[in-house]
Amino acid sequence: VTTYKLVINGKTLKGETTTKAVDAETAEKAFKQYANDNGVDAVWTYDDATKTFTVTEMV
């Protein structure tokens, strides 16, 4: 189990959160659900070296 981080650069929601998951795909599903629940529709990137997902909402 690995800890993954999500950085949110949204128009109305900004911040960071983490989740523990067995792999990046599982973490991504959890983070996308979190973003969807909070109304963030954005572009996703992932950095495997830092285990960090970044979501940037387009203006």
Rank of each mutant, 00 (worst) to 15 (best):
V1K: 11
V1D: 08
V1Q: 11
V1R: 08
T2S: 10
T3H: 04
Y4A: 01
L6Y: 01
L6D: 01
L6H: 01
V7D: 02
V7I: 13
I8K: 01
I8R: 01
I8D: 01
G10W: 14
K11L: 14
K11Y: 09
T12R: 08
L13M: 11
K14G: 07
K14C: 15
K14F: 10
K14A: 08
G15W: 15
E16I: 13
E16D: 05
E16S: 10
T17I: 15
T17L: 14
T17S: 08
T17N: 04
T17A: 12
T19Q: 05
T19W: 09
T19D: 02
K20F: 12
K20V: 13
K20R: 12
A21Q: 04
A21F: 05
V22A: 10
D23H: 03
D23E: 02
E25G: 07
E25W: 10
T26I: 05
A27K: 00
A27V: 02
A27M: 02
E28S: 07
K29R: 12
K29S: 06
K29E: 06
K29C: 06
K29Q: 08
K29T: 06
A30E: 11
F31M: 02
K32H: 07
K32T: 05
K32M: 09
Q33K: 13
Q33H: 07
A35R: 06
A35D: 02
N36C: 12
N36F: 14
N38E: 07
G39Y: 12
G39M: 14
G39A: 08
D41F: 13
D41A: 09
V43S: 07
V43C: 10
W44L: 06
T45L: 07
T45H: 10
Y46N: 00
Y46P: 00
Y46A: 00
D47A: 02
D48P: 12
D48G: 06
D48S: 09
A49V: 10
A49H: 08
A49Q: 09
T50V: 04
T50Y: 03
F53G: 00
F53K: 00
F53N: 00
T54I: 06
T54R: 04
T54S: 05
T56W: 11
E57D: 10
M58F: 12
M58G: 10
V59E: 13
